[in-house]
């Protein structure tokens, strides 16, 4: 590593460069089997029961965006990380880093959102911490939440369990969160009515597992890095090929419009209330029905299938009938004109 190297924004983008940071620095530093699994949360065996344990820090600009704020993200994000392990969330912690001068009014509003989100998710925030740093040492407010959850017996979802023949389900329209945040970002001056999709998914997951049991092989919430990155991660850890069909992917017209205007690929924009599932075909219809019964899953659709080859690769059949490779996000997307 070059001593002049610094952390870039790209290191946090959830794409390939973030992966490299994880692989080269974090994994060797903390070296242990639970971490090496690289699931959304760690799975710990404790006296016969299996606990899921997950943590995430939240920074977002703007902190209030259409459809939510940083508080929703902090609660739902960790609830969802637990849910993607197949767990029922038990309790959350919340820690705040506040910038000197941050308006109390805004802080109060965020706490209110968090309390509401926790209530809606049916999980309590049971411990926390607050630190204040001098002006300029943080951007307004950063939140960390951690959570523990209980994995019911018989549930075995993990990102390496995708098998050729699995069908791939997306629980709703793509990239709503990413677009709502972008549109709200200062300076770009776009007006949309797209709202962030932030929502807790653990009830949907519980219904899916009740309907499909072990046939639900993989669950993943495609947050930073988007669907494209999530599918690549699954393809890599399961050693399967993934084929998706562009025209089956639900996408709101406004989301498509903003992506066209700014040159973004919706496959790489963040989602905060969506999941992608790899399901054995025998349980496919039952699982889809379970997802559609959830308000956050009404637009769920089958978007593709896992194949034996090309292992570790994601291929998309385009709307016009062509084929292309879908790689991981290779750096935060910037609005472009070319």
């Amino acid at each position: 590593m070059d001593p002049a190297d610094k952390i870039l924004l790209d290191h946090g983008s959830g794409g390939r460069i973030a992966h490299r940071l994880l692989r080269d620095l974090l994994l060797p530093a903390f070296d242990n089997p639970a971490l090496a699994e690289l699931n959304d949360g760690a799975i710990l065996e404790v006296e016969g029961s299996r606990l899921a344990f997950s943590t995430d820090s939240y920074t977002v600009d703007p902190i209030f965006f259409p459809g939510g704020d940083i508080g929703d993200l902090a609660v739902n994000g960790t609830v969802n990380d637990l849910a993607m392990c197949g767990a029922r969330p038990l309790a959350l912690s919340a820690a705040f880093i506040l910038e000197e001068g941050f308006p109390l009014e805004d802080f109060r509003r965020i706490l209110g959102t968090m309390a509401r989100a926790a209530r809606e998710a049916g999980v309590a925030i049971v411990t926390g911490d607050t630190k204040v740093v001098p002006r300029g040492a943080a951007d307004r407010v950063f939140i960390n939440t951690s959570g523990i959850g209980l994995i019911p017996p018989g549930v075995r979802v993990a990102s390496h369990r995708a098998r050729p023949g699995d069908r791939i389900l997306l629980s709703g329209s793509l990239a709503d969160h990413g677009v709502s945040v972008l549109a709200g970002r200062e300076g770009l001056a776009f007006q949309t009515t797209v709202q962030s999709d932030t929502a807790p998914l653990h009830r949907m997951v519980a219904a899916m597992l009740a309907a499909g049991g072990e046939a639900v092989h993989v669950l993943r919430d495609p947050t930073r890095g988007g669907l494209g990155t999530a599918l690549n991660e699954i393809a890599e850890s399961s050693g399967v090929g993934v084929l998706i069909h562009e025209e089956t992917i639900p996408l709101k017209p406004e989301v498509a419009g903003l992506c066209e205007l700014l040159g973004f690929d919706p496959l790489y924009l963040a989602n905060e209330g969506k999941l992608v599932a790899f399901v054995h075909p025998e349980a496919a219809e039952a699982v889809l029905a379970a997802v559609r019964a959830d308000p956050a899953g009404r637009d769920a659709a089958w978007i593709g299938e896992a194949l034996a080859a090309p292992a570790g690769r994601v291929v998309m059949q385009t709307r016009i009938g062509g084929r292309r490779i879908v790689d991981m996000l290779s750096g935060e997307q910037f609005p472009r004109i070319c």
């Binding site: 998309m316 059949q317 385009t318 709307r319 016009i320 062509g322």
Partner: peptide, 9 residues
């Protein structure tokens, strides 16, 4: 051309 997979056509 790449994004729509036009070469494959």
């Amino acid at each position: 051309i790449f994004r729509h997979g036009i070469r494959s056509l």
